[in-house]
Amino acid sequence: MNKNTVEIDFHPELELLRNRTETLRSLPAFDEKLNETGLHPLTPTGLDILQVNVGYMCNMTCKHCHVDAGPHRKEIMPRKTLQHCLDAYDMGGFKTVDITGGAPEMNPDFRWFVDELHQRGAHVIVRSNLTILVTNPKYRELPAFFAERGVEVTCSLPFYNRVTTDRQRGEGTYDRSVEALKLLNDLGYGKDGSGLELNLVYNPAGAFLPLPQQELEADFKRQLRDKHGVSFNNLFTITNLPISRYLDYLLRSDNLNDYMVTLVNAYNPVAAEKVMCRNTISVGWDGRMFDCDFNQMLLMPVEAGDSNATYIQNFDTETLMKRRIRTGQHCFGCTAGAGSSCGGSLA
């Protein structure tokens, strides 16, 4: 195990989700549900997406953020670790590199990393909070930088109106997001035939599940076009997982029991079969590998033998393909209803 890192078997939040109340204790374990539907133990189907969390620093402090990202976070992936990610990509196999954060743009080596991936012909996704792109001149150049390299831009926009968006993400977010979307549209992003893909991510601004993705996408497209002349390719609906800042919100608003009951009752085996952890490796800022970004926040690294094997510099396809995916009650968030992943609904 590397120094300065902590590995714990059972994160306090996982314990809380299992045992905090009588209602929570009465719920079936996620593994039991998997077992009932013939999916236990959950195992990988491939290694298609390398999701790299390049740091938890962000210009925003959104109420729902599972990363607990914000200006106060100092965890930033160093260039050496980014290079290890490139080495893992070079070993072949991954189709997509999905760069996330925090605001990934705030990593000082962000442009270098994107350039390196571009030179390798990788399909690159950048998860942007939109507002960073209009924050100051340094970041205003980024839409053009993305366009020149054919980067897929996937942006957060919780709703197509100001009130809901600003309530979740802070005052002024909606207007700045629309400004950034217009910048991206002007470069061809989200326009038919441009080859520049612009996707939006919706997540509920409260303790409820998303509406059906297709229905919401149609509403978003119509509203953003009519109100602002903005267009985009796809809307991804993502369910909020009960961890980190969103868990705090559920506790403070006395919604945790009801929310967990909703997630468990909505368990969908079709979604469970397609969960993203089965074809993704998530890498944390310190180089540790996880089954997903949520497990990263819960400090549950991949189950890959000794702890050295959990670091990206020791990436080994065979070991990772043989692993069992680590689960907990939070996983009900990805299997509820139509399912949820970084690419939207699953079923």
Binding site: F159, N161, V163, T164, G206, F208, L209, P210, L211, D219
Partner: peptide, 10 residues
């Protein structure tokens, strides 16, 4: 109420 909130109804 929940359905309305999901639809962004204020």
């Amino acid at each position: 109420t929940e359905t309305s909130v999901k639809h962004g109804i204020s």
